[in-house]
């Protein structure tokens, strides 16, 4: 009979913490970059130019219909072939942000669509330019509408980031893999990080619910 033992944690917990730190770095950087990309692509998809709209549509469809892991490998092995040399962490951040940008774009786009024409007309009538209207009225309103789904995307980003160990990044999952090799206690270590991810995402969604209540507006 196998007995569970978590004794190895005493020796290896700094490694796990370090891994969690790398996960945090990856996700926070990709969050910011992916958010920015998402807004840009969303505005492209709403633009009056056919070419912009087409680029936006292709961007979203390709990213949504291919696995993250393949995108990750594509960047990791493909970029050097194009002569772009990066380190794994940067590749990871790029892949994660590009991947999340598609989902962000769709969420922001439906936020934009939820803002009725009346708001545009109202702002134009007050003398605001097109850009000012977007900057001061439309985006703030749509981003509030999109807040909840955006945080869901962020949770997905955190979960997806665990795949980046496959391009040699030692984030939470990567460190778990190493510890499992050292200690031969895979069950315990994977259970621990599974629970760790759960706690992390629970906290995130709790915060997002709280913030959403504060900023919610009903159109």
């Amino acid at each position: 009979m196998y007995t569970l033992s978590f004794d190895f944690l005493r020796q290896y917990y700094p490694m796990l913490l370090q891994g969690a730190g790398v996960t945090l770095l990856l996700t926070v950087c990709s969050l910011a970059l992916g958010f920015l990309l998402g807004i840009i692509v969303a505005i492209m998809r709403r633009s009056s130019s056919k070419i912009f709209r087409a680029i936006g549509a292709v961007w979203v469809e390709v990213l949504r219909n291919t696995p993250f892991l393949v995108q990750l490998f594509f960047f990791y092995y493909g970029l050097p072939e194009l002569g772009i040399n990066t380190n794994p962490i940067l590749t990871g951040i790029i892949a994660l942000s590009v991947n999340i940008s598609a989902a962000n774009c769709e969420v922001i786009r439906s936020g934009l669509m939820a803002v009725k024409n009346g708001y545009y007309e109202c702002a134009y009538a007050l003398g605001y330019s097109k850009f000012q209207t977007l900057r001061y009225f439309i985006l703030p309103i749509s981003l509030r509408i999109a807040f909840r789904p955006l945080t869901n995307n962020f949770i997905n980003l955190v979960l997806n980031s665990s795949a980046t160990f496959s391009i040699t990044i030692v984030e939470l999952m990567g460190s778990a893999k190493i510890i499992s090799a050292y200690t031969s206690r895979p069950f315990e270590i994977y259970i621990i990080i599974l629970v760790g991810y759960c706690i992390f995402t629970f906290v995130l969604s709790f915060i997002s619910k709280y913030v959403d209540k504060r900023i919610a507006i009903n159109l």
Partner: peptide, 24 residues
């Protein structure tokens, strides 16, 4: 439902693939 939705599939896969032979 919640643990499966809120943890990475990769971790779940590794838990099953490496963990199950250890404890059973």
């Amino acid at each position: 439902i919640e643990p499966l939705r809120n943890s990475p599939l990769v971790t779940q896969l590794f838990l099953v693939y490496y963990g199950i032979p250890m404890i059973t």
